[in-house]
């Protein structure tokens, strides 16, 4: 009988001691934090998933309060969470655009030079580790890591070039994350079609010519003709999609026309004009990867 009372008593004492110590510590070690951080923390789902790009919800909350990032980056919390955060921060949410992937490469197998037979594992991640698979070390490899990453059958390798099917794409960003050469980025589609720089080669024009028939040569024609909308950075045009206005594209259209390599393209859902123009055409057969491989084409290629 004694043992029950002693055991109970000890648990009680332990509980009281711990409670007192923790309570004391809570007061003694109190860190003054912005009350908004706590409010934001309370509004976040607390999944610590890292989807926003920060390590945990706490870091994201701090970044939001510090103004380093917009309050709509929590994918788990979604719209309601973004609204709550915006309310706490006293800001209004910007109109958000659907983000869709674009491929910053425009070269099919025919356009790429310096390609050699590659017999290794048929994935971009491994092929990217090997030198000499193809001349261009920036562009699409065409082994389809993005195709396998897509759960929506919305991206395919057509003639060696990853191509997005915008009818099926939901903008999850899986392809952009998997691409070992980082040539897929998520772009806010402010209209049905967006201007995209479809090349990633940062080399000088001469070197680009040596490895690709269609690559951007960094001639700066777009910079001159678009009134500064395009900016050449490391031999590639860069454009700021925040400033992109779909209703005021005149300057951009001039630059698109002037591009000698035709690397500035409107990419996105087909317009009605396009559909009308291609109505009578037969869809070409999908071109399969032309690499001779010793491994069969089953799912398990290991």
């Amino acid at each position: 009988m004694t043992i029950i009372f002693v055991a109970g008593g000890i648990m009680l004492v332990l509980a009281i001691v711990t409670a007192i110590v923790l309570g004391w510590a809570n007061v003694k070690f109190h860190v003054q934090v912005d009350p908004r951080v706590e409010a934001v923390m309370a509004a976040l789902p607390g999944a610590n998933c890292g989807g926003c790009g920060y390590v945990g919800c706490a870091e994201y909350a701090e970044a939001v309060v510090a103004g380093a990032i917009t309050p709509d980056k929590c994918t788990v919390g979604g719209e309601s969470c973004a609204k709550a955060l915006a309310e706490i921060m006293g800001v209004s949410l910007q109109q958000s655009w659907p983000f869709r992937p674009v491929i910053h490469c425009g070269a099919t197998y025919e356009d790429r030079l310096g390609r050699t037979e590659y017999k290794g594992e048929q994935s971009c991640t491994t092929a990217n580790l090997v030198a000499g698979v193809q001349g261009c070390t920036y562009g699409c490899l065409g082994f389809g890591d993005c195709v396998r990453a897509c759960d929506f059958d919305a991206i395919h390798v057509v003639a060696g070039l990853a191509t997005v099917d915008y009818e099926k794409c939901v903008g999850c960003g899986a392809c952009a994350r998997i691409c070992p050469r980082n040539i897929i980025t998520m772009v806010p589609f402010k209209s049905r079609q967006m201007v995209v720089v479809t090349c990633s080669n940062k080399d000088m024009g001469k070197d680009v010519k040596a490895v690709c028939k269609v690559g951007c040569i960094g001639c700066k024609a777009c910079e001159r003709n678009s009134g500064g909308f395009f900016r050449i950075d490391k031999n590639l045009p860069v454009l700021d999609y925040d400033k992109y206005d779909p209703n005021n594209l005149d300057a951009i259209r001039v630059a698109v026309d002037k591009c000698p390599m035709k690397r500035l393209l409107f990419i996105g859902w087909p317009t009605e004009k396009d559909l009308e123009a291609t109505k009578d055409l037969e869809a070409p057969d999908l071109v399969e990867a032309d690499f001779k491989t010793t491994v069969d084409k089953t799912e398990w290629q290991g």
Binding site: T2, I3, V6, A7, G9, I10, M11
Partner: peptide, 15 residues
């Protein structure tokens, strides 16, 4: 424990 239980030897390792 011995002190608390008044000199008895108790085994509280069940806790």
């Amino acid at each position: 424990t011995t002190l608390l239980s008044g000199g008895k030897t108790l085994d509280l390792s069940i806790l």
